[in-house]
Design a protein around this nucleic acid. Sequence first.
DNA 1: ACAAGGATCCTCT
DNA 2: GAGGATCCTTGTT
Length: 208
Amino acid sequence: MSRRRLPESFFSRDARDLAPDLIGRWLRRDEVILQITEVEAYLWPDDTACHACAGQTARNAAMFGPAGRAYVYLCYGLHNMLNVVSNAVGQGSAVLIRAARPIAGEAIVSARRGGRTGPVMLTGPGKVGAALDLDVSWSNHALFRAGGLELLRGDPACEVRTGPRIGIDYAAPKDRDAELRFTSMDTRWVSKPRKLGTSVIRIDRNKR
DNA sequence: ACAAGGATCCTCT
DNA sequence: GAGGATCCTTGTT
């Protein structure tokens, strides 16, 4: 039941609404399954933190395409960051996957992370990209189709905490402060837990 | 053709 | 908590 893929229609809404609904969902690539524990919404229009803010370019083109696809970009020349494209065609908006907890395939994830020992803590977007072995060629990949990288229904219910987004000091103050970061309640699986807000959203997916 | 800077991570202290 | 790694993307000349 929880391993069913989410349909294309699930993604076609504003990033602000889609983002909290991604917490507790599962990302699967072959043997590896990750439970999403932290995301950030990047909005359209008028979000100075969003890559699409300055318009469409070759790099961010996937954000302007149809929802439910991946947008993967290279950060600091070495980290591959996974986003889920939201909104309608022509609107450059997406949700960044910032952290996750391994559900299956831990040995594979550990190997992809350079064979580090100890618990596999995917607390940061670069780590998530490495765990799934992604690069920019995954942009435009449809997450609702079988094969490759898929988004599954995952957990039936969860609680989500909000907070300001991380690493966007270059953005306008109103965008820096906007509570567009969403995390699971278990801060063990969250990057930078000290910068969290106080409000909590309850999500029950059984009653849909 | 060039310069600047980045939605980060790791290794120190 | 601070700093270096590392290289692609972008806007400008």
